[in-house]
C-alpha cells in the first residue's frame, strides 16, 4: 500500500547569492529560514519523502537560478524534487528537468493558458506535472459553483494567481478536475485561508478535491503540528501533506512527525 508522504516546501528568494528560503504568513510577512540546497539536504536526512522548491523571487535582479539550486541539491539528495514558480512553457520546464527535477509545478501560467499542462505532460508524462492551486473560501454563493459544507457554512473556493495577489473567479474544484483531464498528475492544494495561520489544513477543501480527482492530492496551508497532519490523513484521502514553517523554524523535524503518525496508524515511510 502506498505510504502517505510528508513534503517540506522551500519558498526560494533567488534575489541574493545562493538564494534563501523564506516563509510568508498569510501570503505577506516574511521570515528567513536558510540556504535552499542546505535545507533540502537536512530535510532529506530527516526523512522527507519529496521536496518542493517554489521560486517566489520578487526583485528583478536575480543572483541565483533555480537550475543551479536543483543541480547542487540533486548531488546529495535522492528523493523526488519538484520545482515551481514562473514555469510558463516547455523550454523552462526542460531546463529544470535537465537540472535534476522530477516534477514541475504550475499555477498562474496554467490558469492563463491551460494547454500548458498538456504540452508539458505530453513531453514528460503526467506524473511530472503538478498543478498548484491557491484556493480561498467564498461564502457568497453563486450559480454553477461547487458548494462545500464547512463549519462556517456552505462556501465555494476561488482560485488565486500571482502568488495570492489576484483572484481569477475560477472555481478551484472544477479547475482541479479540468487540469487532471489535461494531464496534470497531481494536485498541490493550498488553502489561502489557512496558509501561515497555524490553524491546521482546510479539511473540507482537501476532502472535496481528493474525492473529485483520481490523482494524488497534496494538502497544504496551515500545518503547525503533527496533529494537523494526522487530522488531514484520517479525515481525507490526501496522499501527502506539505508544510514549511513547522520544519523551518525547528518546532518539529520530519522524523518526529513520521514517528508520531506511524504510532497512530498512518502508513508513512520511516
Amino acid at each position: 500500500m502506498l505510504a502517505r508522504r510528508i513534503i517540506p516546501c522551500l519558498d526560494c528568494d533567488l534575489g541574493v547569492p545562493g538564494g534563501r528560503v523564506v516563509k510568508g504568513i498569510e501570503f505577506k510577512q516574511i521570515r528567513y529560514a536558510g540556504v535552499p540546497w542546505e535545507l533540502a539536504s537536512q530535510y532529506y536526512a530527516d526523512g522527507a519523502d519529496e521536496i518542493v522548491f517554489l521560486d517566489i523571487t520578487a526583485s528583478h535582479e536575480r543572483r541565483e537560478t533555480m537550475t543551479s539550486v536543483i543541480k547542487k541539491t540533486s548531488r546529495s539528495v535522492f528523493v523526488p524534487l519538484a520545482v515551481g514558480g514562473g514555469i510558463n512553457g516547455v523550454e523552462p520546464a526542460r531546463e529544470v528537468f535537465n537540472a535534476g527535477a522530477d516534477k514541475i509545478t504550475v499555477n498562474t501560467s496554467a490558469l492563463k493558458r491551460p494547454e500548458l499542462i498538456r504540452e508539458i505532460s505530453d513531453r514528460y508524462g503526467n506524473q511530472a506535472v503538478v498543478l498548484a492551486i491557491d484556493a480561498k473560501r467564498r461564502y457568497t454563493l453563486e450559480e454553477g459553483r461547487e458548494i462545500v459544507q464547512t463549519e462556517q457554512g456552505p462556501c465555494w473556493f476561488e482560485c488565486s494567481f500571482y502568488g495570492g495577489r489576484q483572484f481569477t473567479g475560477i472555481d478551484a474544484i472544477a479547475w482541479a478536475s479540468k487540469a487532471v483531464s489535461l494531464g496534470a498528475g497531481e494536485i498541490l492544494l493550498t488553502s489561502m485561508d489557512r496558509d501561515g495561520t497555524y490553524d491546521g489544513f482546510d479539511i473540507p477543501l482537501t476532502s472535496a478535491v481528493a474525492k473529485r480527482v483520481k490523482v494524488p492530492v497534496i494538502a497544504s496551508g496551515g500545518c503547525a503540528s503533527p496533529q494537523h497532519m494526522l487530522e488531514v490523513f484520517k479525515k481525507t484521502d490526501a496522499s501527502a501533506a506539505l508544510a514549511a514553517s513547522i520544519f523551518h523554524f525547528g518546532e518539529w523535524n520530519i522524523r518526529n512527525v513520521k514517528t508520531y503518525l506511524r504510532e497512530r496508524g498512518v502508513n508513512v515511510r520511516i
Binding site: 500500500m1 502506498l2 505510504a3 508522504r5 503526467n126 506524473q127 497531481e186 501527502a240
Partner: peptide, 10 residues
Amino acid sequence: VMIPQMGWNS
C-alpha cells in the same frame, strides 16, 4: 487503484 502508482511502497 490509482494509476500511475506514484509514491513510496513497501
